[in-house]
Amino acid sequence: MTNLMRLADEPGVLELAVLIADAWQGRRLGRELFAHSMTLARSTGHHTLCVSVLSSSRPLVSAIGREVPAMATAHQGTISEIRIPLDDAAPANQLM
């Protein structure tokens, strides 16, 4: 499941939420949904994706960082907020 939600107090920014059932993990589905979300966000005129993850989820943060080196990460307690500038991010077709 993927959800993109506009942030009312930040025009041009979308919050991305992705949920992959355990049975579907490890099949590149998350990567495909992430790439599709980037394409959709760009096509609707947004400039940034915002993703909140558990700070302990280092493999996920590392995977996003490999795909989008220009990301910015801020840590608040157990949550890491990742901001992905869409102008500088790799084109979605390069994420596959």
Rank of each mutant, 00 (worst) to 15 (best):
I20M: 09
L7V: 10
L19G: 12
S57T: 01
G45A: 12
V61K: 01
E32C: 14
R27C: 14
A21K: 11
A41L: 14
I84W: 01
A35V: 12
T44R: 14
D87V: 11
H75K: 07
L19E: 14
M5E: 11
L54M: 06
G26V: 13
L95E: 08
S55V: 02
V13H: 09
R27M: 15
P59I: 03
D22S: 12
M5F: 05
A35R: 11
L7S: 00
G12I: 05
R58P: 00
G77P: 06
A92P: 10
S62A: 08
R28M: 14
I84K: 03
L7F: 01
W24G: 04
D87M: 09
R66L: 05
G30C: 12
A70Y: 02
L16F: 06
P11N: 07
S37F: 09
A74Y: 02
E81D: 07
I64V: 06
L86T: 08
V68A: 04
V53D: 01
I20T: 14
I20Q: 10
E81H: 12
D87L: 12
L95K: 04
S52T: 06
L60V: 03
T73I: 13
S80T: 15
G12D: 03
A90F: 06
S55Y: 01
A92D: 13
P11H: 06
E81G: 04
N3E: 06
I79W: 09
H46T: 10
E15V: 03
